[in-house]
C-alpha cells in the first residue's frame, strides 16, 4: 500500500477518480501474489506426488493426488454429500448461534460488573482451557450419537471465545474515553448503549469469527469420533472402508466450509462495523 492510499482509503479519497497508474501497480501486485499462491500449491502437489511415487509411506494410506481430485469432483454430484454437508453446517451454526445468544449478553454483564467478573473468573479460565472433545464420551452416553449431542458439544466449545472476547471488549475502554465520559457526566444507561456496546462490538465480532471456524472443526470432530451423521461421519466411514482418497476429499471440503464461513463473517463484520475497519485499518 502506498502512503497516499493509507492516508486516503478509497471511499474517502478526496479525488474519486483514481489515477490509472496506481491501479496498474495494484493489479500487478495482485497478479504477483496469485503467482506465489499458485506456486505454493504446485509445490505441495509436487511433494505429495513425490512421496506417493517414492513409496515412502504405504500406497494404501497415501492415495495419488489425482484420485483425491476425482473423488472431490464426484462427491459434488451426489445427494448424500450435500445432505451430509447441510447436516454438519446446520449443527455447527445452531451451536454457534446458541454460543452467541449466551456468550454476548453474559460477556457484557461480566464486562461491566467488576464483582461478577471476579466471581466468574476462575470458571471462565477453566472453561476456556477445557478440551471440549473430552466431554464427548459423557455426551454420547447421555444424549447418544445425535445431532442434539453434536450441537451441545459445539456450543460448549464456541461459547468461550465469544464470552472471553466480549468481556475483554466491554472492559477495555480507552482511559481517555473513560475520562471523557466521566468528565461529561454521561449517565450509566447512555454510557452502556453509546460507549460500552460499540466499544465491545469489534471484540465480540472477532470472538464470533474465531468461534465460527471452531464450530465447523468441532462439529466435524464430533462426527468423526462418534460416527454421528454428517461430513465427519462420512469421512470416518470412508477411512474405515479403506477409501483414503474419498476421506481426503471430505477433508478438503471441510476446510473449504471453514474458509467460506470466515470470509462471510469478515464481510458482514466489515459492513456492520465499518467505522472500526476504517479507524484501525485492519486486514484479514
Amino acid at each position: 500500500m502506498t502512503i497516499a492510499e493509507k492516508l486516503y482509503p478509497p471511499s474517502v479519497a478526496p479525488n474519486p477518480k483514481k489515477p490509472s497508474g496506481r491501479r496498474r501497480v495494484r493489479s500487478r501486485k495482485r497478479i504477483g501474489l496469485a503467482a506465489w499462491q499458485l506456486g505454493t500449491a504446485l509445490l505441495i502437489a509436487a511433494v505429495w506426488t513425490l512421496v506417493y511415487e517414492s513409496g515412502l509411506l504405504s500406497r494404501e494410506l497415501v492415495p495419488p493426488l489425482w484420485d483425491v481430485a476425482r473423488e472431490f469432483v464426484t462427491l459434488a454430484g451426489t445427494a448424500a454429500f450435500w445432505a451430509a454437508l447441510a447436516t454438519t453446517v446446520s449443527n455447527a451454526l445452531t451451536g454457534l448461534a446458541a454460543g452467541i445468544v449466551v456468550g454476548v449478553p453474559f460477556g457484557l454483564l461480566l464486562g461491566i460488573s467488576q464483582a461478577a467478573y471476579r466471581s466468574a473468573q476462575f470458571l471462565i479460565e477453566l472453561g476456556r482451557s477445557f478440551p471440549v472433545i473430552a466431554l464427548l464420551p459423557v455426551m454420547v452416553l447421555v444424549l447418544g450419537a445425535t445431532s442434539q449431542m453434536e450441537i451441545v458439544v459445539v456450543f460448549s466449545g464456541v461459547l468461550w471465545p465469544i464470552l472471553v472476547q466480549t468481556i475483554y471488549g466491554a472492559r477495555r475502554i480507552d482511559p481517555v474515553i473513560a475520562d471523557t465520559v466521566r468528565g461529561y457526566r454521561i449517565p450509566p444507561l447512555l454510557r452502556f448503549v453509546k460507549v460500552v456496546l460499540p466499544n465491545a462490538a469489534p471484540f465480540a465480532a472477532t470472538g464470533v469469527r474465531i468461534a465460527a471456524s471452531a464450530s465447523i472443526l468441532i462439529a466435524i470432530g464430533v462426527e468423526v469420533l462418534s460416527l454421528t451423521p454428517g461430513m465427519g461421519g462420512n469421512l470416518a466411514r470412508a477411512q474405515t472402508d479403506g477409501a483414503p482418497a474419498l476421506a481426503l476429499a471430505y477433508v478438503v471440503y471441510a476446510g473449504l466450509v471453514g474458509l467460506a464461513m470466515n470470509k462471510i463473517l469478515w464481510t458482514v463484520e466489515g459492513r456492520a462495523l465499518a467505522w472500526n475497519r476504517r479507524a484501525t485499518r485492519s486486514e484479514p
Binding site: V176, I177, Y184, R185, K194, W275, N276
Partner: peptide
C-alpha cells in the same frame, strides 16, 4: 482518542447533551 470512533462528528459533539 477522546472522540468516539464509532460516532460521526456531530454525534460526538451532541452526545454529552443527550445525557
Amino acid at each position: 482518542r477522546s472522540l468516539l470512533p464509532w460516532m460521526r462528528t456531530r454525534e460526538n459533539v451532541s452526545f454529552p447533551l443527550q445525557g
